[in-house]
Design a protein around this nucleic acid. Structure first.
Length: 215
DNA sequence: CGGAAGATCCACT
DNA sequence: GTGGATCTTCCGA
């Protein structure tokens, strides 16, 4: 708790922009502290805003579930090995993208997957980007990593972008009390052996936008 | 150079 | 609950 960097720059509408120092810490700490933050996407002249409600930490070379497992460095994962504060976006299952926030120091390959968020501004436009005529249930807009990227028009064009400037910015948002956070094993990584059980998934308790399986 | 698998989502039974 | 969509990425041969 005492290791949170000061975020006292002049506040914009959704709180101050998170400084690069916020990201350059251990991935599980950043994953927990990203809950309640606002992700502001500038797209075609408008702002789309969501509040992060679910994250997962990926620890790098020692984590079999991580794309940086055993230090793997490929064209795809290059941005994972940069210093914290940039985006790592990848394409999966032939049709979806996933958004990661790179954490820690350069070379350690750690990151946080942004799994789910609550719509705050631009719900109508996000529903359109998702190709939903209307959102019928909570979580339809951004209740999963693939949905979130569709809703915010995130694709490989944003790979490597900084989160403290540009068209995808993280702002301080709300302070989340520790008893509002629930933890569990990560989703979709059963192949990862011992790492599959590590409690690196974080979510806001009882938030309807959290993806399945519920924590 | 081929093939298998994937940090997902949706429709259908 | 199950399977199909869809294609990049990566590893092994």
């Amino acid at each position: 708790m005492g290791d949170r960097p000061a975020v006292s720059t002049p506040a914009g509408r959704w709180g101050p922009v998170l400084p690069l120092s916020f990201f350059r810490r251990e991935a599980s700490i950043v994953a927990r502290e990203l809950l309640g933050r606002y992700l502001v996407r500038r797209f075609e002249g408008r702002s789309l805003v969501v509040k992060i409600v679910e994250t997962e930490a990926y620890l790098g070379a020692a984590d079999r579930a991580s794309h940086a497992w055993e230090g793997r460095r490929t064209a795809r994962t290059a941005n994972l090995f940069r210093a914290g504060g940039v985006a790592y976006v990848y394409f999966i299952y032939g049709m979806y993208h996933c958004l990661n926030v790179v954490t820690g120091s350069s070379e350690d390959g750690s990151a946080v997957l942004v799994r789910a968020a609550a719509p705050v501004v631009g719900g109508e436009e996000m529903a359109g980007l998702r190709r939903l005529s209307r959102a019928s249930r909570p979580g339809d807009i951004a209740g999963g990593p693939g949905k979130l990227c569709q809703a915010l028009a995130i694709d490989l064009a944003l790979n490597g972008q900084r989160f403290d400037r540009g068209s995808l910015v993280l702002r301080a948002g709300e302070e989340i009390a520790p008893d509002q956070v629930v933890t569990g094993p990560r989703v979709g990584i059963a192949y990862a052996g011992e790492a599959a059980d590590w409690p690196l998934r974080f979510a806001l308790a009882d938030d309807p936008n959290v993806s399945r399986p519920r924590l």
